[in-house]
Amino acid sequence: MSDGCPDKILGAQVRLARELRKLSLRTLAGLLGVSPATLSHVENGKTRLSAVRLSRIADILDFEVHEILELEASPHDRMDASTELRRHPRHDGVELGETSFDWRVYEPLTFDPVLSAALGEFLDIGYHGASVRGIAARCDMSVSGIYHYYSSKQEMLRAVLDYAMGELLRRSECARAEGQDSVARFLLLVENLVLFHTHRRELGFVGAGEMRSLDADNRRAVADKRNLQQRMIDEEVARSVSDGFFRPDSPLDASRAVVTMCTALPSWWRPDGPLSPSRLADMYTTIALDVMRYRSPDRPAPTRPALDRP
């Protein structure tokens, strides 16, 4: 940096790392458990960044600390982002080079062979029944070959759940951004939860059943992301209550009930069943409005755009 201030240089490197991962400042702040203003002060060199917090940021962004410190954050000779992304691939469910995408469209999962095999084992026999040897056999690799990519079965589970939450949060941000008011944003977030937990039902199933299998640090990190997703819904519910559109007796309990009914979909929904993901989204957004006791004297409840509804 031109002024040579260490805090400003480090802040700029953190900002570049965040931008490379295509996370908004608000999202990263939520995952860190700080306010967006605090993170903004860090990125602008106004607040000193502790080693502990830098390590936490690196973990969330899937960088090593030294990789962040090696980023060239000068505005005149900053490294090309697309080149850096190729050096640091990350599974988050969306191509990181994109600036926007259709959050309603789902492509096949792009796990590496080891993680794909691990997901299959977790689905078939559960985390505790799975073994590294079984995962290696499923992807036709040696056990030593597996350890070249993942140090443990625990790391594989954490990678699967990180992928799931990364993709869900990215899609939620895009869905929420389309809403013109709090009720519309609430419905878009509910629709996104339904689509994710049907199109990505395997990830949702493992996420619901294997959180208890994570060690304490991993469980806390994944739970932080889940809490961020819940807060997105909570915020729009609170705004809709304040605006007089929602009238539940207990807004937070109603919000959790709506999220829970969506996250439970992988336990019973099947792709060969009578309900398509889009039709389920229609049903669930209507139910969600009923749960929130939606009333508006001057306009009907918002509707979603027509998609495929067999």
Rank of each mutant, 00 (worst) to 15 (best):
M141H: 09
A164G: 11
A12V: 01
M79I: 13
T303H: 13
T285L: 01
E235A: 14
L157E: 04
I125S: 04
C5N: 14
R158D: 06
H199C: 13
P113M: 12
D112K: 02
V206Q: 02
T303I: 06
E167G: 02
G209A: 08
D112W: 02
D298K: 07
G4E: 03
R170N: 10
A58F: 03
R87D: 10
L195K: 08
Q13Y: 01
A12E: 04
G179E: 00
R78A: 15
A58W: 03
D112T: 10
F186W: 04
I60P: 02
D249T: 07
S40C: 00
L275I: 11
S276C: 10
A29M: 00
A12M: 05
G11D: 03
D140R: 14
T286I: 07
V206Y: 03
R87T: 02
P6W: 05
D298G: 05
T303E: 12
L54G: 01
L280H: 02
D272T: 13
S82L: 11
T83I: 14
M156P: 06
S296D: 14
E155K: 09
L228T: 07
D3T: 08
L32D: 03
I233H: 06
R48E: 06
F101R: 09
V160Q: 11
H76G: 08
Q180R: 15
P266K: 04
L187Q: 06
L187E: 01
G207Q: 08
T110K: 13
S296A: 10
N192E: 07
C139F: 14
M211Y: 09
E43I: 03
A301F: 01
P300D: 13
D217G: 09
S240W: 03
L119H: 08
A208N: 15
E167P: 05
R304G: 13
D215M: 09
S255E: 06
G166Q: 02
A288T: 07
S116A: 15
C262W: 01
A17D: 04
K22D: 12
P36C: 05
D77I: 13
A238V: 07
A254I: 00
I287Q: 11
H197K: 02
P251W: 03
R295A: 10
L195Q: 01
P248S: 13
L252G: 09
R15K: 11
L252N: 09
A288N: 02
E178S: 07
G30P: 04
Q13K: 12
P251V: 04
C139D: 05
R295N: 09
A223S: 10
G97M: 06
